Simulated assay, not measured.
Amino acid sequence: MTVSIENGQLIVTVNEQGAEMTSIKHKETGLEYLWTADPQYWGRHAPILFPIVGALKNSTYRYEGKEYTLPQHGFARDRQFEVVAKEADRVSLCLKADEATKAVYPFDFELYVHYELGGEGLQVRYEVKNPAAKELLFSVGGHPGFNVPLTDDLTFEDYYLAFSPMKSRITLPLKGAFIDAAQKTLSATNTNLRLSHEMFANDALVFESKGLTKITIASDRSPHSVSVAFNNMPYFGIWSPYPKEAPFLCIEPWAGIADTLEATGELSEKLGIQSLAPGETFMTKYAITVK
């Protein structure tokens, strides 16, 4: 089932399966900003990444001497969430640990996903609670895809990425599905980056993020754009499938990251892993603004 929220400008639809946004539509223009999940390119819209972000080496990790298997980006995106609060312009959904999750991830947890509209934008907030008597190890992140081009008269290559603040950032190259941390470099995100499909020939572009970061997808030939802004997300990815010439782009804020080539497999040693003490709550968020 799906639920919808709206205000004077936008209508946002969320699927209870995976608590995944399936539509961000402007009420006046009818413009759809969120990727349509065409399966010939990528059959998702905006999956939630939990309890890991990215891939594990051999799809496995170790915790307290036992080995477990998790697919890329974890299991939350394929689980049924419960709607726990709903108003006209906001909705909250929750996923809690059960026998199925504990078979692959031996932790008690409560994952809340909050969507709230305001003006021309949408705030997406993740809240992770630890109800157990031991620490909770996890990662969480977003993976929203946006239609590029936003209108039929333009092409993917008509768009560019604008970064704010305009400064260089550390980029972490991928080797296969894993981070090659030894080859990290400084990337020229101090200028606009023209989009092309070939820029994703080595999969996603992965960056470190410090402080407030805003990434805008825009074109000089259109008044329409979409921005993603976040603060408490130490990494982000930018992705479109290659060699498919897919008409969408993902901007992905992450509190976590894929395994490095040197990863030991111990969950507590994983790069970007979050640790939450008993009874504590972790919160992070990102905002989507459209024109």
Score class of each variant (00 low, 15 high):
121 G>N: 08
24 I>E: 03
43 G>D: 06
75 F>P: 00
220 D>R: 15
62 R>Y: 00
155 T>M: 10
275 S>L: 09
88 A>D: 09
17 Q>P: 00
284 T>Y: 10
61 Y>D: 02
124 V>H: 10
218 A>M: 11
51 P>L: 03
121 G>L: 03
278 P>T: 02
25 K>V: 13
234 P>Y: 06
187 S>M: 05
165 P>K: 08
32 E>S: 15
214 K>V: 03
49 L>A: 06
273 I>P: 10
193 L>V: 10
140 V>H: 07
158 D>G: 09
96 K>G: 06
241 P>H: 00
16 E>A: 12
122 L>H: 09
92 S>L: 12
208 E>Y: 10
207 F>W: 04
192 N>L: 09
214 K>Q: 15
145 G>W: 01
243 P>C: 10
264 T>F: 09
65 G>Q: 02
253 P>R: 01
219 S>K: 11
145 G>Q: 08
165 P>V: 00
248 F>D: 02
224 H>T: 04
85 A>E: 15
116 E>Y: 11
150 L>M: 15
89 D>E: 13
188 A>G: 06
58 N>Q: 15
209 S>M: 07
221 R>W: 11
174 L>H: 05
26 H>Q: 14
48 I>F: 00
57 K>H: 11
21 M>A: 10
98 D>S: 06
275 S>D: 07
274 Q>L: 14
95 L>R: 04
275 S>R: 15
204 A>N: 06
198 E>N: 02
175 K>S: 15
96 K>C: 14
9 Q>L: 08
64 E>A: 13
162 A>P: 04
273 I>E: 13
248 F>Q: 02
251 I>D: 00
272 G>V: 00
241 P>Y: 04
184 K>L: 07
239 W>Q: 02
112 Y>D: 10
15 N>R: 12
165 P>R: 08
152 D>L: 11
84 V>Q: 13
254 W>Q: 05
209 S>G: 11
16 E>Q: 15
286 Y>E: 04
214 K>C: 10
87 E>W: 03
55 A>H: 09
31 L>I: 14
201 A>S: 14
39 P>H: 11
173 P>E: 14
175 K>L: 14
168 S>C: 11
63 Y>W: 05
120 E>N: 14
26 H>W: 13
205 L>W: 11
179 I>P: 02
98 D>H: 06
157 E>K: 09
198 E>I: 03
235 Y>S: 05
61 Y>T: 00
138 F>G: 00
93 L>E: 05
6 E>A: 14
87 E>A: 12
285 K>R: 15
97 A>V: 01
272 G>R: 01
59 S>R: 07
120 E>D: 15
74 G>K: 01
161 L>V: 03
154 L>D: 02
287 A>R: 14
262 E>K: 05
220 D>C: 12
119 G>P: 08
65 G>Y: 09
180 D>K: 04
28 E>H: 09
31 L>T: 12
200 F>V: 01
234 P>M: 10
63 Y>G: 04
116 E>M: 13
224 H>P: 01
204 A>S: 12
104 V>W: 09
113 V>H: 08
2 T>E: 11
